[in-house]
Amino acid sequence: MSTNVVFLPSTSEENYRWLRVGNGVIAARGEGLPAADDSPAFVIVPAEDVTLHWAALPDRSAAQSVAAARVLVADASAAPIGELHVAVGREAGETDRPIGVVSTAQMQHWLVSLAKAGLDPDAMIPAPMLLPRPAEGYLRADFGGDAVVRGASAGFADDQQLTPLMTGGVAPVMMAREAIEAAIVAAVAAPPLDLRQGLFTKRRRVDINWRLIRRLGWITVAILTISLFISLTQIMQYGFAADAIERRTDLLARQGLARGETVNNAAQQLDARLVRMRGAGMGFSTTAAAVFDAIRAVPGTELRGLAFDQKGQLDMTLVAQNQGQLLDVISHIRAQGFGAEPSTFQQSGNRLSGRITVKPK
C-alpha cells in the first residue's frame, strides 16, 4: 500500500510538494497536492514553525508524558503554555523522547488549509524528524529548498548565521540524496514524532459491521431461548419432586392412621389422632411430667389426686407441710411453661391440702 507524503510550504514558498512512498521506496513525486485516493497521508511541517526538545519522560501513559513535557516547555518557552500545542514522540532504542512545540493557532491554520484542499493527514511530522538521529555531530538535508539540521538532541531549520551558533561551530554533514530518501521512507513507516495528538488527534470513522451485529443478535436470542428452556426444565423438575414428596408424605400419614379408617385428608387426620393419643394442650404426658418434676423438686410435698380433661387441663390434689412449699411447687410448674392456678387450701392437722389446675399458657 502506498503512502502520500506532503511537504507544507515554508514562509518563503507558496506551493505544496509531495512524494509517494510504496514498497519501501519513493515511487513518485510532484508539485502541488497528490490526486485524492485512499492512501494514508503524512504531512511534513516546516522546521521554522516547530520547536524541538528532548527529555527523559515518564512512560506510564501518553497523558503523563504530555503533562511532564508541558512543564518542561513552560520553563523554556516565552509564549504562554496555554497557547502552545505540545506533542511527545519516541525514537527506537533511545531513552530521551522528542517533544514538539507549535502554536495552537498554527496547528489550526494548517489543518483548516489542508481540509480546504481535501486532505485530512494521518500524521504531521516536523521536517527535522525525517532525519535519523546521529550518534555524534549534526546532519543536514535539503528537502527541495528547505534545509534542516538534526543533531542527537536538536532539530531546526538551517540558517547561514544561526546554524553555527546552534552547533557550536561544528559543521553539519550533508546527507546524500539516496540517504535522504531512505530516511523519509523510514520516518513514514514509524513516525518518531506525530503532532496530531490531544486536541488535534485525527478522528477515526467507525464502520458498523451490521452483519456481525445481526449474528450477535441471533446468538443472544439463542442464549436467551436456551436459558428459558433450562429454567422451564428446572421448574418442571422441582414440580415433579414436590409431587413425589407430597405423595410420600401422604403415604406415610396413611400408615400412621388406624387400620380401616377412611382417608380424606391424611395429614389432618394424623394430627387429630396425635391429639387423641397425647391429649389436648401439651398432652397428658408432658403436663404430668412437669407436675412430677415440680413435686420432686420440693421435698415434703405429696400428690394425692390427678385428673386430665379434654381441654388439656390437669387438676392435681397437692398436700404440703406449709404455704411456702405450695408456692415453690407452683413456681416450678410455671417455670416449665405452664400456667398453675391454686384453689383454696385447707389446714388439716399439720398439713395443707388443696387443688392446683395446670394448663398450657
Rank of each mutant, 00 (worst) to 15 (best):
R60M: 14
N350G: 13
A280I: 09
D49R: 05
A288S: 15
S113W: 05
Q346M: 11
I26K: 04
H332K: 14
A79L: 14
E178F: 05
E13A: 10
A152E: 00
A92S: 11
S103I: 06
I245A: 15
D250R: 02
L19H: 03
R276W: 10
A56D: 12
L326F: 08
D142T: 00
P172F: 03
N264H: 06
R90G: 12
D37F: 03
G155W: 04
L327P: 04
S39T: 07
Q269Y: 00
L216E: 07
D120I: 14
A154I: 06
N209P: 14
L252Y: 03
M236A: 10
F156Y: 00
L72I: 13
F42P: 12
G30V: 13
E341C: 07
E261I: 15
P126C: 04
T344S: 07
S153G: 13
G144C: 08
T167V: 05
R247Y: 10
S12N: 07
D142L: 01
A171S: 06
Q161Y: 03
V319Y: 08
T220A: 14
S331K: 10
T262P: 12
I125R: 01
A74S: 11
R276E: 13
T51Q: 11
D96L: 13
S285K: 11
A280L: 12
L111K: 07
L318H: 03
R296S: 12
A340E: 08
L212C: 06
S227N: 11
A182H: 07
A76T: 12
D194Y: 02
R140Y: 00
M175I: 12
S331A: 15
I180R: 02
V319I: 15
L303R: 01
T163A: 11
D293H: 10
D96N: 04
G82C: 11
L139G: 05
F338I: 11
F292V: 14
A117E: 07
S103P: 10
S153E: 13
A117Q: 01
T95G: 13
A79G: 09
E31K: 00
R205F: 11
R70Y: 07
F308G: 05
V25A: 10
M124T: 06
Q161E: 08
G100L: 08
L111F: 08
L195M: 08
D146M: 04
V329T: 01
T301I: 12
Q106N: 12
A36K: 09
A55L: 15
Q268I: 15
L306D: 13
T344Y: 00
S113C: 05
R214N: 10
R133D: 05
A47Q: 04
E341D: 12
R90F: 10
T51H: 05
Q108A: 14
T287M: 10
A141F: 05
T3V: 15
A289L: 14
E94W: 01
G305S: 13
I295E: 02
R351E: 06
V185M: 10
I213K: 01
D59R: 12
D75H: 05
I180S: 00
R97T: 09
T95P: 15
A297H: 05
S10G: 13
H53C: 14
Q161C: 10
T104W: 00
T344W: 00
A280F: 02
A105D: 08
V188Y: 09
V45E: 00
R215H: 09
A189I: 13
R150T: 04
W18N: 00
A241V: 01
V188D: 02
E136H: 06
V66I: 14
N322F: 15
R211V: 09
I184N: 02
E246K: 05
T201F: 04
W54M: 09
